[in-house]
Amino acid sequence: MPLTREEVVNLAAIYHIQLSEEEVARMQDEMANILEQFESLSQLDTDGVEPTSHAVPLATVMRKDEPVPSYPHDAVMGNAPDTEGEFFQVRTVLED
């Protein structure tokens, strides 16, 4: 069953991505087709099974809190689309 238009538009809003009407329509069908492939998992009994987020066991890694040189400020800012002085520049965040 295709996703509703509202569901797709709502997900796009959560992610802050703009989709065209055509993209929304395509996503309704494509996502439904893909989600259908996931249904098979419900056949498996996973009661009492622990989830695995990483296949190789990991412990929290700590390092010494020692200062190290950072990258030069102007080099970092050189990749920014829009700057003013030392700062990133963005459009209006809060409207009047």
């Binding site: 802050h16 989709l19 209006t92 965040v93």
Partner: peptide, 12 residues
Amino acid sequence: ATAWETQERTRA
């Protein structure tokens, strides 16, 4: 026009 719209349009 706004910061949020920049993000939405950038990804689009």
